[in-house]
Write a protein that binds this DNA or RNA. Structure first.
Length: 266
DNA sequence: AGCTCACCCTGGACGC
DNA sequence: TGCGTCCAGGGTGAGC
């Protein structure tokens, strides 16, 4: 389940493609979500820029095309050795004139590829980047104010904040000492400040360790990440809290599993 | 408008 | 060993 730190790690690896020209490509129609530009016109064009927005990876191609990837929960986008056989569930392959190859694989097919002229068509509803100054304490305060929905559900809403997923939302709430079930509007200013700091910190730490490999995630070179060794609550149901020793509990909030310490998180 | 929940999909874990 | 069942979850959209 690639979230912001995983997608950022992949994006950084793929940035070595900036300046490379496309030789040929294959995209399976089953992963092509939207297309207002013909893939046949791509060969010969160069990758101008590669960047991340929320959990999306954007390739700016030629003067006016954007190829946008979302990895869902089992997707991989990585530089591959063209001589190696493509695995099952390889839905797209990009060959570049300098000999590089990128593959897109996604067994569960929750992800997808968009080929559009205007990236806003896909990214337009996203909230601010959590690691940009735009995500200020005041902004978070405004988002939570008056909301009765559980804080956990709100943190996963990409319209308010782009890039947070289940793992880092649980970790941020643990770090801030806040129960995932709390109504968002009930947090006091001290708690909001702690949550604001915690969100930024867990994402930065995740990036530092190259992301979390819980099941499927691999980086832009198809290697696992290292942050799974630094998780406090996610996936640790029944194991002792690393701060107080009380067993970590798992509950379902808004249809998503949530892991928390009933003693450390109020 | 705000909120909850079912749905999409497949590999892997688990029980009998 | 092998079969069946259940679960994971991001984003979307239906329904209350």
């Amino acid at each position: 389940m690639p979230e912001l730190p995983e997608v950022e790690t992949i994006t950084r690896a793929l940035q070595e493609l900036q300046g490379s020209a496309i030789e040929n490509l294959y995209i399976s129609p089953i992963v092509l979500r939207c297309q207002n530009y013909a893939p046949n016109n791509l060969p010969g064009l160069s990758i101008m820029r590669i960047y991340r927005r929320g959990k999306f990876i954007v390739w700016e191609i030629g003067p006016a095309v954007h190829m946008i990837f979302h990895l869902g929960m089992s997707g991989r986008l990585f530089l591959a050795d063209p001589r190696e056989e493509a695995g099952k569930h390889t839905h797209a392959i990009f060959n570049f004139k300098d000999g590089k190859q990128v593959r897109y694989c996604d067994p569960r097919r929750f992800g997808g590829i968009w080929l559009v002229k205007n990236p806003g068509e896909v990214l337009g509803t996203l909230g601010p980047e959590p690691l940009d100054p735009e995500f200020s304490l005041e902004y978070l305060q405004e988002c939570l104010s008056g909301r009765r929905t559980p804080i956990k559900s709100l943190l996963l809403d990409q319209r308010l904040l782009a890039g947070l997923g289940n793992i880092y939302a649980d970790e941020a709430l643990f770090k801030a000492g806040i129960s995932p079930e709390r109504q968002a509007g009930s947090l006091n200013s001290r708690e909001i400040r702690q949550l604001h700091r915690a969100v930024i910190k867990v994402l930065q730490d995740g990036i530092t360790h190259g992301g979390t490999t819980f099941r499927d995630y691999r980086d832009g070179y198809n290697r696992p990440g290292g942050f799974q060794n630094h998780l406090y609550v996610y996936g640790r149901t029944g194991q002792p809290c690393l701060k107080c020793g009380k067993p970590v509990e798992r509950i379902v909030i808004g249809g998503r599993s949530s892991h928390y310490c009933p003693r450390c998180q109020k």
